[in-house]
Design a protein around this nucleic acid. Structure first.
Lengths: 365, 365
DNA sequence: GTGAAAGCGCTAACAA
DNA sequence: TTGTTAGCGCTTTCAC
């Protein structure tokens, strides 16, 4: 038989409310009784019923996490950190994967939002602020934060500064002397910060922006792999390529290899994300590091701080919009093999931080 | 103001139970009223309150998922499939990551178990049946299934046949003529099926089992990488190595490369798991495929079938213990490059299935 | 310091 | 067909 507050109370011929107070550590129970109750509860291995409590308190201590997928290493790593930090703040996490489907995203939101989670986090790597999703959010009163992409003015978000990141990547290539720099996986829309960054970086160097040098594809190993052929068909052939994500970069390098094209000797490749495999991917990948753990921490902080305030009936914090700084991680895929390297069995890592600082904008609703 | 059954009922001056029936599609409401109610509910965008419903029905439609980590691609891929199948069966999933910590596993179990989830799935890659965890499970009345490792007689599980898998891997190596086959990442315990498989496979071939050829390490890219040095120090040097997981194999290959040792020319490597990156890892990895999606499907089927039975008050199914068959996936890392290969931009895949069938043992409690 | 009572939102058995 | 009632397990306000 399940053990409940009432059953515990019966043991001592007292009322369940007293037991509740004793176990919640609320003042107003005699120390002796309190200790007896606690002891007995432990002995009987009493566990408060989360659902009952949630109904009474209107708090579930659960945050909903909507993600496009989990198999993708970038998502996997971010989800990992989110869960760990959530756990530290005593939140459970409810996971919902949408398969990059906008309708599914809305469904997930509905399911989670309607009062079974205290907050929702949404991981997305593309434009956010699309009307439906956005409206759905605003109708609810629970806090939410977008992770991975910037959002409209009145929505919390934490994301890397993509434009700066891409700029660093392209600059690295131009510094190495590259003039014909193609890209794979960019989305040719004004809302794609990576696309903007790519264009601006080339413009700054006075390099021509050629549409045929912009090969679009989704983010996966396979699409990257298949893009290799497209890149090699270009005339004149690019000497370097910026891949919009590491999975693409890794696939690409494999594709090149398959066609007898060496990286970095024949063509240089920079990635974006710095997923863990990047260091172990055939040719260790030079890439732009996303501070995933930091982003996760910030996201969890935002919701837990918000929730703390409503609990204490304090003024709720302003919308927080965090752009965190990327870093350039130099490995082998762009041909920085010029220096002598000791044969030390550790993944080589030269980190070059961007000059900017972590920017944080606070705006009022 | 939140919209509830009562508030909906007020609109028509009827009782909330009628509204409840109408919306649940339960017979016993006049068609006209029913339609009016449904229409109004949709208009007001009514969403049933999951917590209230859960308290009343003692069902949360949520399954708890306890995993050691999510950043690891093997875990990530399995979690992905689990979530997708759970979703298909209308389950939410509550995720709990334990960081390979047994105490955390028990905590997670407690948190989830005590009536906020209908079932729990536990993903583990090591021995299961450890007293504490096991007892904790048995005290609860909710169904659970272990994924990835076989469990004691009265516990559901679904796992690959690891012993067979390792046997296939080692056999592949011996077929290629290898005699000195080291291993990395095995656990030298009687409960490690991979270890058993490795030993048996060598014995079968009449090969010596050398303790120094068994290099232990945890499953990560980094530990694999660091193990390369250890392998190369052995005398006589092995000509092939079996890595207990793909992440180890990938790290290992990078370590070898770093030290100027070529794979497969100088040394052959087989992995285990067939994670997605395996096909794109510098040298495409020959490995043992775990049917992750199939395993996920079986796991979800087990719990949803169980839950269906208790709901219908039918006899609950017997314990299901599924060992699914691994497959040998031949790529490049063992030197099967003998045949001419067309330059076709697709990851090469030669799948060799094990001769056995998917075994399923049903046992009574 | 402790008990009684109400109520969170819903479902389900029973009456009408 | 519809309403009434009770109750899921807990918290919390108000009496005592």
């Amino acid at each position: 038989m399940e053990i409940t507050l009432d059953r515990l109370a019966q043991k001592f011929n007292i009322h369940r409310s007293t037991v509740s107070r004793a176990l919640s550590g609320i003042t107003g129970v005699s120390p002796e009784l309190r200790d007896k109750i606690i002891k007995e509860a432990e002995e009987m291995n009493y566990q408060p019923h989360a659902i009952g409590r949630a109904l009474a308190t209107k708090k579930t201590n659960t945050i909903g996490l909507i993600v496009p997928c989990v198999w993708n290493p970038l998502c996997g790593e971010i989800i990992h950190h989110l869960e760990v930090y959530a756990h530290l703040k005593y939140f459970n996490v409810m996971l919902s994967v949408t398969g990059y489907d906008e309708t599914e995203e809305i469904n997930a939101l509905r399911t989670l939002m309607y009062r079974q989670v205290d907050a929702v986090l949404i991981l997305t790597n593309y434009e956010f602020g699309k009307d439906k999703l956005f409206l759905e959010f605003k109708e609810s009163s629970i806090p939410f934060v977008v992770i991975g992409y910037s959002a409209p003015a009145n929505i919390n978000y934490v994301a890397v500064d993509r434009e700066t990141g891409v700029n660093m990547a392209v600059e690295h290539l131009t510094n190495l002397g590259h003039k014909r720099i193609a890209s794979v996986g960019l989305i040719m829309k004004s809302y794609d910060h990576k696309f903007i960054g790519y264009k601006k970086a080339l413009e700054k160097e006075g390099l021509e922006i050629r549409n045929d040098f912009i090969v679009t594809c989704e983010a996966s190993f396979e699409t990257g792999y298949n893009s290799a052929k497209k890149i090699l068909k270009l005339t004149p052939c690019p000497t370097a390529v910026f891949a919009a994500s590491d999975v693409i970069a890794i696939g690409l390098i494999n594709g090149f290899k398959e066609m007898g094209v060496r990286v970095p000797e024949d063509i240089a490749v920079v990635g974006f994300d710095d997923i863990e495999v990047a260091a172990y991917a055939g040719v260790p990948l030079t890439t732009i590091h996303q501070p995933k753990e930091e982003m996760a921490k910030i996201a969890i902080d935002i919701v837990s701080e918000y929730l703390r305030c409503v609990e204490e009936e304090a003024r709720v914090p302003l919308v927080r919009q965090n752009l965190v700084e990327p870093k350039l991680v130099i490995r082998d895929s762009c041909g920085m093999k010029l220096q002598q390297r000791n044969i030390v069995l550790q993944p080589r890592l030269i980190v070059r931080e961007s000059t900017g600082h972590c920017r944080m904008k606070d705006r009022s609703e």
